[in-house]
Design a protein around this nucleic acid. Sequence first.
RNA 1: GCCCCGGUGGUGUAGUCCGGUCUAGCAUGUAGGCCUGUCGAGCCUGCGACCCGGGUUCAAAUCCCGGCCGGGGCGCCA
Length: 443
Amino acid sequence: MRNTITQRGHWKKTHYNCQLSSLPDGTEVTVMGWLQDVRDLGKIKFLVLRDSTGVAQVTVKVDAATKNIVDLLSKLTRESVIAVKGVVKRTEKSRLGFEVIPSELKVLNYAKKPLPLEVTGKTPADFETRMSVRFMDLRRRSELLIFKIQHEVLRAIRSFLHEKGFTEVFTPKILASATEGGAELFKVKYFDKDAYLAQSPQLYKEVLTSCFEKVYEIGVYFRAEESNTPYHLNEFVSVDIEAAFMDYEDVMQLLEECIKHVYHHLAANCSRELRELGVELTKEDVTKHFPRITYSKALEVLQDKGFAINWGEDLTTPALRKLSEEFEGYYFITDWPTETKPFYIKPSVKDKNICEAFDLMWRHIELASGGTRIHVREELEESLRLKGLNPESFKEHLKAFDYGMPPHAGWGLGLSRLIMAITRRQNIREVVLFPRDRTRLTP
RNA sequence: GCCCCGGUGGUGUAGUCCGGUCUAGCAUGUAGGCCUGUCGAGCCUGCGACCCGGGUUCAAAUCCCGGCCGGGGCGCCA
């Protein structure tokens, strides 16, 4: 006999699993979800029904259940989608404190077998296996929680920036020129023209400070770098802000407050979820001041640790690992050599070799980068030339600096890197639903 | 792009150093059976695998070469 899929018909899901435990005994419910497991003891069968919010136990006593239910059960496979109408029974016999006694059962879809990985987590799966069947991997609660937490992080960031008077904007991701310099861009066809995918909203958000004053954008960007590390992706989400009449000290302070606000929000809204991921939030997470260390000071610290780096050189990954031994959690590296930073970063008035730039670090990973921007056209052109770039190819951008560009500053924060830091995951791919890296283009 | 490590049933592993008794072990899964309180259920029986291509050898999961794929460390990343 063929497996039959029933139409959902007029049935409506009345409750999510996470709501069931607080319902009074005898409440009639219709629950829908995935059959994670069946513990079959013969005359009594326990179904573990999972939905996006958690699991519920459906208890079927063969002698008391309808023949239809028993027949359907005999053919059910794990991860099939089912709907159960029944009543909630509060009982100490179930560890959840309740169970659902079914009166009707519908199979909404059958899952094939064998499954490509174990959703229960009983048998661990390789990274590669997990990524290749990511839709299944994400049914595991630990993986789902990462993205529930990311959702809360974004909610916190948006409310924080809104409170601070920032306007959320969207800038183009398809650009005419690849002349920004820096990272390699992906080239795409734009009808009969060549175009490039944006690697950041940098130039647009700066221009927008001349009208909105304070803007932020949460967007997806692309870099065609052949990186191969656990913290680089070719497609990533960045949280960018830019503010008129502020300098790097101001926006650094803002960034620190923003991260603290995120932790505050998480402590209030998802400490249980974080605990499930093995992360225990402490009071320090919300209160501790982020240490600030200048680039020059960092070099001294490294010198003491036997790491010789010439002034002016960028800090290598091994150097940053070494340096991070000095700090617990987040810290800023400030006052970088002008030559290590992009053309739009403002050199210090006191010393042209140093610029008003900072990186927010977590361990050896750069979470955010920001600074005071050059807002005077002549200085910007000078800076472009010093970096070996041609001001002519920035003509369109420079135009905005002719008509009242305010002094401004800003930063860009890698969202997934922040999520890595919060959830303590080791590989950025784990905190991205469908990561795009050097070799991964599917799923 | 460079260096290191790895690839064994659907899933995760043992075995590889030191080739043969590996007819490839275990767990999970899966199929069937027993079981009315399981909650990683338990017990019994069955099923299912050596990444690809060359080479060495009487003999290759095991050694050598190449490829593909993955992980880590770097580099690249205004």
